[in-house]
Structure formats: C-alpha cells, structure tokens
Write a protein that binds this DNA or RNA. Structure first.
Lengths: 245, 245
DNA sequence: ACAAAAGTGTTGTGCGTACACCCATGC
DNA sequence: GCATGGGTGTACGCACAACACTTTTGT
C-alpha cells in the first residue's frame, strides 16, 4: 500500500506495557526477566513490536494478552518514547501503555509461567533501557487519572471492601486518608452498591463487600457529570523539564 | 546499527504539530493547506517524518521551526496515533505534539509565506486524516494542563494586561470568569510582576502591563509547590471510550 | 477478656462564589 | 459629558478537614 512518502526512513515501533495490580495492600507491577539479547536476563516491562496490520492499541492489547491471557482490560496510552539511543539493540520508537488489572490466582500462575513477577512499586529493581522512566511517568499518569476518574475499581476484585479500597487509594496517592471522610466521600457518589456478604479475610469482625455500579457511572458520564475524588494527583517533580507530558 | 530485531516490521513515523496561539481575543491554530498528495489542497496540521538520527522531540521541534522559524517553544507530546488506515498514503504512525506560541507580526508573515493561516478554534475547517481528532485531544490536554500549570503565559506576549490574561483563560475553559475573583486569584500566587507601563490599545483608560515571574515560579516548582488555577479542566466527553488518554 | 479491625457523626473554618460601584481617558 | 473598559472589597455559605468512641468476633 505504500504509494507515497517513499523517500522517508522507516523505523521499528515497539509497544511496552506498564501493568499495574493491587495485592497484599501494595501497588505492584508485572515485570519480567528479558529472554533475549540485548540485556538478556535483566528486568524489563512486557513489550513487543508493532506489526504491519494492527493498530497501536491492538498491538498493546495483543502483548498484554500474551503475558496475562486477559482481554478487555483497562488500558491507556501513556506516551511515545523516541530517543535515538534508547534501545541499544536498534533504533526503536516505543509507545508505552499502562494497564490496570485485577490480580487473581490464575493470572498469577500464568504470569509466573512466563517468568514474570508481581513486584511492589516500593521495591522496583533497575529496569532496562528507559523502562524506569516509563514507570515513573505511568505512576504520575495513574495519580492524575485517579483524581478524575474512578479507575481504582479496575485494580480490585469485582467485590471489595471499603478498607481495601481506601488502602488502594492510599497507595496511589501516597498519604494516609481519614477513614470517616473517605467513606463519606466515596459513598456520597452513589456509585457503590453494598452487598449482603462480608469478607472475613482480614479481620474478625468482617467488612461488608461492595461492588462498583458501572451502569450508573456510565449514565453519569453520558450526562456530563464529573467524578472528582479529592486526592493529591501528583506533585510537580523537581527538575522535570522534559518535553514529554 | 540494527543488530537485533531484524525480523520485525519497520514503519513510517510522522510528527504532527498542533500549534496554539492567542490573538484578537481568540484561541487559534496554525493550519496549512497540504502541498502534496494525497489530500493535496486540504487543511492539515504541520507535519513531517522522523529521520534516522533525531529523537521524536527533536523532530517535532525541527518541524515547528520549519514553519514558524521559532525555537525554544513550549511543546509537549500529546499522543501517538496508530490506526492502520489513518493515512491513506501509507501505513504511518503519527506522534502528535502541541505547541504554545506567542503570535507576533514576524511569525504571522513567515507563516503566511508558507501558506499557513491562523484560524480560530471556533471556525475550524475539516482537516485531513485524523487531524481533527488530534486537535480535539490537544484541546482537552491544554485545558487539563492549564489547571495544573501556569501555561497561559506561553500564549501571551512577555508583557500583557490582566484583561488579556482573563480573556485567554475564558477562551481555554469556555466560560465567563468574574473579574474580581480572577484578579484576586491570579495575583495571590505572587507570580505576576506589575509594571509601570500601561497598554492603551484596547481602552481609553489603559490597563497596567504585567509580566510572569519565571524565576519565582521555577523556585516554587523546586520547592514542590503546586500551582492550581481553579478552572474547569474539561468535561468528560460523551461516548469517549477510546483507549487513548 | 482482650486484641484487631470495622463502622459511625459532628463541628469549625477557610476558601470559593456572588455581587456593584468608582475611575480614567478619548472622543 | 458620556461612553468604554479598568480597577477595587465584602459577605455568605458550603465543602473539606479534624477528631473519638462503639461494635463485632476470634482467640
């Protein structure tokens, strides 16, 4: 189909996925040890190359699916990374995506079968190339988006407790929240449905389970209502003069 | 330098620039009529292709410079656009950047020499390919960023009046602002320096000129202070289910 | 009975919002 | 002298932040 633009350079285009999960009260990333040169054996994001007949979004979903077996996942483009020497293997433009997934046992096992591991963002190892930069930017994007959109639920099981939800928000925005204010604020939205069941995993008393009312949320969105959780959406980073957003 | 990844597809990578300016009380875009096929003669963003030995950021700056002659411009990456058929000329990945520039006479003349025109965002013509989508996303990004960062000053002359600044913010957030509240809020930041001079262009009485205190702002940023202008940062768009941010 | 986590209301205050009149100047 | 746009202060109400005790149940 190339009929025009013949005289211009062509480039490898890669996709890299920053895969967020929430488990054991910690925000985690799914990382893997690279299985090929260059940088074989070092920690890396899950990545792959763009094919001729797939869009960027499709390629990102394909790559996420390869590692996790999951589809229909919350996934957003983060940014393109295009420094000339970012990948020592070859000039490669990488488009990074971040994904939010609900970790469960199946995913965990499948990921481990691929040599992947869930690692807390508090204990990240050094990553290859510019992957650490991607992770940093993904965290900033996650924080900003959390203050505009109820995306926390993408990281929790369908049924979750309010203490769990609060703990997740505390991880994302890196500060303690007041239990009463948090519950009031989140319940006021009317987007949580209280269930009859209790979860007794983490306390003797047990905490009521809730689920997120996606239908109601979508109807709010259609009406143009804005969901705003008042949460620190991220500090300006010292010396952050990058041209990247 | 390609030593690895030989078996993967290579792609054309384009850059497209959404160039914002503010003039005659309106937010404007610098658009041009395409000079080559396909879609010759139609309205388009300024664009170009990524070369072998330049980063994405560098290429975007080069392309902006070609059209405007300007460098050291406020410019941020918006997003990569990668639908398979987005450009009928050939499979092309486009990375869009938005730029904020201070329109002055010189720029205007140079732009016109290239067949470019400043067009109000209220009167945009249809654009080629997915360029209208890019513009829409750039506007959303501009609105969000305006609420987090004092970027309005990038669109005004070095010396500007408060009525001018207010008018700019009103254009960006699409609502009338109260004069007294606006002035109070913006002056409270301590980031504006009042000059002795007045601008008499737009009123008999004349309005005092101010300049933005970049040094003070940078020192605030270093200290981690957050600049927050309380302005509508953009509505959720109905049916906006794109995977793109 | 005690430890550990869940659940529940009230009060003060600071910030955002609403609002109306005088001033300076050119024509 | 009048029309045009620039400049200024206050009062109210609401939404956010701070805060402590009771309940349940497993051991």
């Amino acid at each position: 189909m190339t009929r025009y633009y013949k005289e211009y350079d062509h480039h490898l285009v890669a996709l890299d996925c920053i895969i967020f999960g929430f488990d054991e009260g910690e925000l985690k990333l799914l990382l893997l040890k690279r299985k090929f040169e260059p940088a074989k054996g070092e920690w890396s994001l899950m990545g792959g190359f763009l094919g001729k007949s797939e869009s960027l979004d499709e390629a990102a979903c394909r790559i996420l699916n390869q590692l996790t077996g999951l589809s229909n996942i919350y996934m957003k483009q983060l940014s393109a990374f295009g420094d000339v020497d970012r990948d020592p293997g070859a000039r490669t433009i990488s488009v990074a995506y971040y994904a939010l997934i609900k970790i469960d046992e199946n995913d965990r096992l499948r990921a481990e079968a691929h040599g992947a591991e869930w690692i807390s963002i508090k204990r990240l190892p050094p990553l290859i190339f510019d992957h650490s930069l991607m992770v940093e930017k993904a965290l900033e994007a996650l924080r900003r988006r959390t203050s505009r959109e109820p995306i926390g639920f993408e990281l929790l099981p369908v049924k979750f407790t309010l203490p769990q939800l609060q703990s997740l928000y505390e991880c994302i925005c890196r500060e303690q929240l007041d239990k009463r204010n948090f519950r009031k604020q989140i319940l006021e939205t009317g987007l949580l449905v209280k269930l009859e069941e209790k979860d007794k995993e983490s306390s003797k008393k047990g905490a009521f389970l809730y689920k997120f009312d996606h239908k109601k949320y979508n109807s709010y969105v259609e009406k143009g209502f804005l969901f705003q959780l008042k949460v620190k959406s991220g500090h300006i980073i010292k010396g952050n003069n990058s041209i990247l957003d």
